[in-house]
Simulated assay, not measured.
Amino acid sequence: MKNRKPPIVKVMSFNIAHGLGMDGITDLERTATVIEDSCATVIGLQEVDRFFGERSQFMDQVEWLGNRLGMYTAYGANLDYAPDREGMPNQQYGNAILSKYPITYSKNHHMTPVKQWYGNDEQRGVLEAVIEIDDMAINVFNAHLSLKDEELKLSVDEILSLTQKSKFPCIVMGDFNAPPFYSPISKMNRHFTDAFLKMKRGDAYTYPAPHSYSSTGVDLKPVTRIDYIFFGPEMEVAQTATISTDISDHLPIVADLVLARNKQALRPKEKTSKAKA
């Protein structure tokens, strides 16, 4: 029997800003269309609302996107507030993972906050998921990290601790709120491969999304890269791309990752549970 070709997974990371475009309009259908057109099969989304408020029409954006795209979903709430009215769901804001393949396990990890006199004190988090691809499994970590230097450094250490415990090949992606020359990103590169650097596209800027100030006629373009897709040694990258759009303040990024079949194992069935949230 011939060996099957190793599967290629198209991974996307996208800070969707709860569907708020650079034109000031919130429209989740535009978000879904960009994801759909990308043909990504594993997607990490940041800044996703669930019943959060009027800004997103109190929608469960995770369920809506999962149904719209026909994908499995997992969600991790980093902000979780009591509802304004009794009997309503909690108002939540956090990270989501969408997948064409079954999600067999998911867990949200809150990052340790560091109190400082500057910057906000928003709770940050990393959503973990185990995803089955044929007879294999991968561990996906989707992060939205702090703007504060000390907290960012601590969060990267905590992410690396999580990945070191994993039994499966790991993908780490998300909005790290830090450019490539920051020391926490350099530390990530000592343990994982940056898909865009590997493809010699380290200048593929993702923030802010291109937009115009109509009153001044000034066109703005992305000036820094703060969104990343990292992968472990069991994988290779075939291609990468940024997607030009103004439906969020970040540009989505995609990478085609080739999984080495002979280096992966599937968690025994009795240790997994189906997760579709």
Score class of each variant (00 low, 15 high):
235 M>I: 02
209 A>L: 04
116 Q>M: 11
168 F>K: 07
8 I>W: 00
213 Y>D: 15
264 Q>H: 12
47 E>Q: 11
187 K>L: 15
101 Y>E: 02
29 E>S: 07
153 K>D: 15
25 I>F: 01
80 D>L: 00
234 E>T: 08
270 E>C: 04
172 V>M: 06
253 I>G: 14
46 Q>C: 04
18 H>T: 03
35 I>P: 06
26 T>C: 06
134 D>W: 03
24 G>A: 05
164 Q>T: 09
130 V>E: 14
142 N>P: 07
165 K>F: 01
218 V>P: 00
255 A>K: 10
74 A>C: 05
150 E>H: 06
32 A>H: 03
100 K>F: 01
277 A>Q: 14
2 K>I: 12
59 M>Y: 07
148 K>M: 14
50 R>E: 09
38 S>L: 03
164 Q>N: 14
92 Q>H: 03
37 D>F: 02
5 K>Q: 12
46 Q>A: 04
134 D>Y: 08
31 T>G: 04
248 S>I: 09
135 D>M: 09
111 M>T: 13
21 G>L: 04
170 C>S: 15
245 T>H: 10
20 L>Y: 01
185 I>N: 10
258 V>C: 12
119 G>M: 10
210 P>A: 05
178 A>S: 15
65 L>D: 14
244 S>D: 15
219 D>M: 03
147 L>D: 09
120 N>P: 03
153 K>A: 15
257 L>Q: 05
51 F>T: 09
52 F>W: 15
156 V>H: 04
119 G>L: 12
139 N>M: 06
242 T>Q: 13
260 A>G: 11
272 T>C: 13
230 F>Q: 00
205 Y>T: 06
65 L>C: 10
186 S>Y: 07
148 K>E: 14
5 K>C: 01
197 L>D: 11
222 P>G: 05
232 G>T: 08
75 Y>M: 03
27 D>I: 01
157 D>N: 14
51 F>H: 15
93 Y>L: 02
76 G>V: 06
49 D>N: 13
126 V>E: 07
133 I>N: 13
81 Y>S: 02
88 M>F: 01
25 I>Y: 02
207 Y>L: 10
36 E>I: 00
228 Y>I: 04
63 E>Q: 12
11 V>M: 08
141 F>T: 09
88 M>C: 05
214 S>E: 12
271 K>S: 11
237 V>D: 08
259 L>A: 11
262 N>E: 15
270 E>N: 08
67 N>H: 12
160 L>Q: 11
117 W>I: 13
246 D>M: 07
120 N>C: 06
8 I>T: 14
228 Y>F: 14
125 G>H: 03
46 Q>F: 09
30 R>V: 00
251 L>V: 11
65 L>I: 10
185 I>D: 04
139 N>E: 11
269 K>T: 13
207 Y>A: 06
139 N>W: 00
114 V>L: 07
220 L>C: 08
229 I>M: 02
78 N>R: 04
74 A>P: 05
268 P>R: 11
55 R>S: 09
182 Y>D: 13
134 D>A: 12
134 D>G: 08
27 D>N: 13
153 K>S: 14
162 L>I: 07
247 I>D: 13
262 N>H: 14
210 P>G: 05
39 C>Q: 12
266 L>W: 06
123 Q>I: 14
274 K>R: 13
219 D>I: 04
180 P>T: 07
267 R>T: 15
234 E>Y: 03
41 T>S: 12
169 P>W: 05
